[in-house]
Amino acid sequence: MTYSEKVMEHFSNPRNVGEIKNPDGLGEAGNPQCGDIMKIYLKVRDDAGGSAVIEDVKFKTFGCASAIASSSMATEMIKGKTVDEAWELTNTAVAEALDGLPPIKMHCSVLAEEAIHRALSDYREKRGLAAVPIREHDHEHEAV
């Protein structure tokens, strides 16, 4: 199993590592199978026009290189986007942006998608917005 250069680059120098104090959205996702955990913190700017923008995003991840690179890439992909745009981010898009992940490591990117969805749901809840159902992933090796 080898990782793409992109994965190794994001793994070695992950972007957006850390926490945000009093985040507007906080999401945590875990993989029951291998025991990995990812936490996403969001800072959202609510514009008058109604488009809420993700001003800042940070993550903390316990997991393999694929999990860390996925966290890093996913946070880059949603930074500066509206919350609605961020909601559309899929784990396959994250994996593609990383020039692919080994099949057995695809589930690590699912963690990123789920943690972001949870953070966005938390944000909606805090703002009193209606909940949007979170896409369920099958935690078996879906891509294997």
Partner: peptide
């Protein structure tokens, strides 16, 4: 460890 929620 710095970036690990488990360590936290």
């Amino acid at each position: 460890r710095e970036m690990s929620p488990v360590w936290e």
